[in-house]
Design a protein around this nucleic acid. Structure first.
Lengths: 238, 238
DNA sequence: ACTCTTGCGTTCATACTGGTCGCGGCCTCC
DNA sequence: GGAGGCCGCGACCAGTATGAACGCAAGAGT
């Protein structure tokens, strides 16, 4: 199996090095280049496609782009649109600190294959690229013509349902329920209030809220004015 | 929730009518138009985006395109590239009889969201669009900023449901028995309850239920309130 | 200013289920 | 008729929410 040729597009030199190193560490991938700007990326892409496209077995050609959204000379989405306009056969994984919903939404409709939010761990990175490799194997291993279930299979491997791992004692379901509860309410809520709404015990609710506060997803503050020990109240951050 | 506005692009009048009718039958979707050619599609798209883009609450705008690959005046992939080049925020589901691997591959890298091979049943169609609706709810229901796990969640809901063939360790008979059991009961049931009703072991029942939950045929949720480790309860979806 | 009251934070033991491993019966294919 | 694989089961271990008990911090009362 030929390796998947990867182009890293990232203006921050430290991050670019890190991504390149990550790619080198993975089996089945080959680093095809690093671009520090949108212009550089376009140049590399057209050079590669001029060399390798068209021909059946052209050796170069970029298979996968790891694309940062914040580039010095262009927004990542613009670059993505230009690439699409050229009809280059490269897939794109967005790797960026941008977490605005609007950008995520646009990136997805522009046809990215994965969206990875910085900062991330090596294992998150490896998961995403691994999923992409599997997706590729699923499609390319097939004959020239395919079936619905094969296509479904390929899509399935591209969209894994493997969220980040939680510390012991916490469950994915409960965490989602609590996050959902927090997000629907604008007001800060106490652990006891969350507990009674979700039919949980106060202790359990508190454990999850404390975990979220630890990860900076929620803000914790004290609620004074009532008798008794002051209560903590939690509010979804941002 | 506003309906998802769908544009059907299909040159065969019979198929176009069928797709339009299918869309009308689905909750949460609205038919925004039918185009018989690439040119017509581009005209409708730019009209819609001129009316509705830019503005925050523009009512029109196309959210989703059901795109045939074989159009009289252009290949579907070309149309797709032009749409992408304009940066329109529409997502695309390819619906086509074309099953060449090369086309599927290109369509995916051009950023389609699903690929549906004709001929298909209404239920296959409904599955694909339902998955897309869920994906949208996942993303749009969120606040302005998002997290990695939410993005993953959204991608995961785009993943097609059950693979056609059963994984090892599961038998057709047992699966049918369990599905039958779930369908007759309206109430969510725990793995242990299913097991005792069907005279199976808890382990076996759980394996099947988990398989079904993975394929999105059943919904899994936690049952709180009692002491001890929380129980999962399973309910037939729709 | 000191103590009392109050109610939540925190810890701990407990209960009950989920998940995994290896075994055994049964069917199928040599 | 023997061998191999498949599927369900029992039993263990780990996981996860609960409830009670204890302690602490802020207001209320004297």
């Amino acid at each position: 199996m030929e390796p998947i040729r990867v182009l890293v597009v990232e203006d921050d030199p430290i991050a670019a090095d890190a991504h390149a190193e990550y790619v080198r560490r993975l089996d089945g991938f080959a680093l095809a280049g690093v671009a520090r700007s949108g212009a550089e990326a376009m140049a590399l892409l057209s050079a590669a496609s001029a060399g390798g496209a068209g021909a059946q077995a052209g050796p170069p050609g970029i298979d996968l782009i790891l694309l940062d959204m914040n580039l010095p000379d262009a927004h990542g989405l613009d670059l993505l649109r230009r690439v699409r306009g050229l009809g280059l056969p490269a897939d794109v994984i967005a790797i960026t600190a941008v977490r605005e919903l609007q950008v995520v939404r646009s990136a997805i409709s522009a046809g990215i294959v994965q969206y990875l939010i910085k900062p991330f761990t090596y294992s998150a990175f490896s998961d995403k690229l691994g999923a992409y490799r599997e997706f590729r194997l699923n499609l390319i291993g097939q004959a020239a013509s395919t079936t619905q279930s094969e296509v479904d299979q390929a899509f399935a491997s591209l969209r894994p349902a493997a969220p980040a791992s939680l510390p012991k004692g916490l469950s994915e379901d409960t965490l989602r329920a609590i996050i959902g509860q927090l997000k629907t309410l604008e007001e800060p809520v106490s652990a006891a209030e969350v507990a009674s709404t979700l039919d949980l015990s106060r202790v359990t609710a508190r454990r999850y809220l404390e975990y979220l506060a630890d990860g900076r997803s929620v803000r914790r503050s004290s609620r004074y004015g009532t008798r008794g020990r002051p209560e903590f109240e939690y509010r979804w951050a941002q």
